[in-house]
Structures are given as structure tokens and as C-alpha cells.
Design a protein around this nucleic acid. Structure first.
Length: 253
DNA sequence: GGTGCCCTGTGG
DNA sequence: CCACAGGGCACC
């Protein structure tokens, strides 16, 4: 489910609800989802600590602890974090449960079990999760056309794959890369080194209307919302991609 | 650069 | 039955 917008939604909804609460105990049913330290140590070290709030960087979430420590997690494909009364039946595929004071539980469920947790103490550098080497956030002022051009301008790789590199820009995944390239009228398979300065500026100044539904992703075969041509699907970098052959071009370059 | 893999579930 | 799913990584 989650790319940056979805992860940010989780943070905004659950953050205020978790802030100020104490973790009474932690239960891990699938030890493999705890990437660091071991599951036993993870539970032992967290018991009794207070949550200050939730943070996010790219697609990583962090449970920020009042003592400066943090639990960083990645939901990957199907991970889900939710708050529920302790007596509420547990969701299928629940792998980690944080029992909080006040009778509620913060639960992690994940059908495909790709999601991972890392526990870090105050001042400890995160060298494992990947959260430490993320590029700028999409709305970071440092993320300019010039930055993208300097980063991608010489790359032969498809522009879609470039946009999904977390070290280049944090938080963009398979869906939003398609949406971004549709808005910019750029073919997703186009080699990054063929883009002009104008391409990099294509959507600058345009209104980012809050279209509640996706424009192209998942709409293969439907008419393009801009021109009516039939949206097409192709595989780029092993990921399925949907685009408009008229707006974004029939051929990649 | 590609490919496969980690998993379970869903839909054709 | 097979193909595919919003992520990321290890491996030729």
C-alpha cells in the first residue's frame, strides 16, 4: 500500500494518538520482521519506554521515544500499522504488538511479511535500515529542477527508475512515479539523459490539484484523463508502468 | 543493466 | 493454473 503519501497519512493519524503513551510490553510473533536487534532484545529494551510521537522520512516511519531512542520501520508492500483496543480481535497477519498504557495496542500486520523494524538508541546512527541515505523529500526546497538534472542528466536509465531511487528522491514508488511522469508528459521508459531542461521544468508553476484518484496507475486500457487516448502498460525496471502514448509519447525517446 | 527472491493473496 | 501486486535487496 504505502508510498510517501500513505506513510505520511499513517504518521498524521497515529502520531497524536500515540504521543505521551507508555509501551508496557512488546510481543513479536514473527521474529524475522525485527531486523535489528534480535526480537527478544527488541521487546526487552522497549518495555516501559514512552512514545513522544511518530516521524517519517521517505517511506520510513519512526516511533520516536521520549528518551531520544526510536523504532524505525518500513511497511514495504503490505505492512500496516494501526491502533486498536486490546480486546479488539487481532487482524490477520499481525506480527508485532506494542501494548500501550490506557488499554490500547499499536499493531503491525503484514500479509507478505516484507516489512521490517530497527531499534536505535539516542545518538545511534542508522546504518542498517537505509533511512540514513535517503535523498531529499519531494517538497524539500533543495529538490529543484537543477538538482534532478545534475543527478539524472547523464544517466541512461529510464527516468521512471531514476525517480524511484530512494537515495535520489525519498518516498516515490511505483504508483507515484507513473503519476508524476503523466503530469509532466514524459514517457516513463525515456532515458534520463535525453531529457531537456524544459522537461525538468515541465510542471513548474502548474497547479497540483488534489485529484483524489490516480490519473494513470491501474488504469491501463482506460481513456487518458487528459486526451482520451487509451492508456498503455509496459514493464520498466521490473515494475509495471502505465502511461498515455499520446501525451507522453509513443516511443520512450 | 537485468533477474530472482523474500511472502501471501487475488484475479483472470 | 499462472501472472501479478504499492519495496528493496542480493546476485550474475
Amino acid at each position: 500500500m504505502p508510498e510517501l503519501p500513505e506513510v505520511e497519512t499513517v504518521r498524521r493519524v497515529l502520531g497524536p494518538l500515540c504521543a505521551g503513551r507508555r509501551i508496557e510490553r512488546v510481543s513479536v510473533r514473527r521474529p524475522e520482521v525485527i531486523a535489528h536487534p534480535g526480537a527478544e532484545e527488541f521487546c526487552a529494551r522497549l518495555a516501559g519506554r514512552e512514545i513522544a510521537g511518530l516521524g517519517r522520512r521517505g517511506k520510513f516511519l519512526s516511533i520516536l521515544l521520549a528518551d531520544g531512542g526510536r523504532v524505525t520501520l518500513h511497511l514495504r508492500m503490505t505492512g500496516c500499522l494501526l491502533l486498536a483496543p486490546a480486546d479488539h480481535p487481532e487482524e490477520r497477519h499481525t506480527h508485532v504488538v506494542f501494548a500501550l498504557d490506557g488499554g490500547e495496542e499499536l499493531r503491525f500486520s503484514d500479509m507478505r511479511r516484507f516489512g521490517r523494524f530497527w531499534l536505535l538508541e539516542a545518538g545511534e546512527e542508522d546504518e542498517r535500515s537505509g533511512a540514513g541515505k535517503l535523498g531529499p523529500e519531494p517538497f524539500d526546497p533543495a529538490l529543484t529542477a537543477g538538482y534532478l538534472q545534475s543527478r539524472f542528466g547523464a544517466r541512461k536509465k529510464a527516468v521512471k527508475e531514476c525517480l524511484m531511487e530512494q537515495e535520489a528522491v525519498a518516498g516515490i514508488g511505483n504508483i507515484y512515479s507513473d503519476e508524476i511522469l503523466f503530469a509532466a508528459r514524459i514517457h516513463p521508459a525515456r532515458a534520463a539523459n535525453t531529457l531537456s531542461a524544459e522537461d525538468y521544468l515541465a510542471t513548474k508553476g502548474q497547479e497540483y490539484r488534489n485529484t483524489p484518484y490516480l490519473q494513470v496507475y491501474g488504469h491501463e486500457g482506460d481513456p487518458c484523463p487528459a486526451c482520451g487516448a487509451t492508456l498503455r502498460r509496459m514493464v520498466i525496471g521490473g515494475r509495471s508502468s502505465v502511461f498515455c502514448p499520446r501525451c507522453q509519447g509513443d516511443e520512450p525517446c
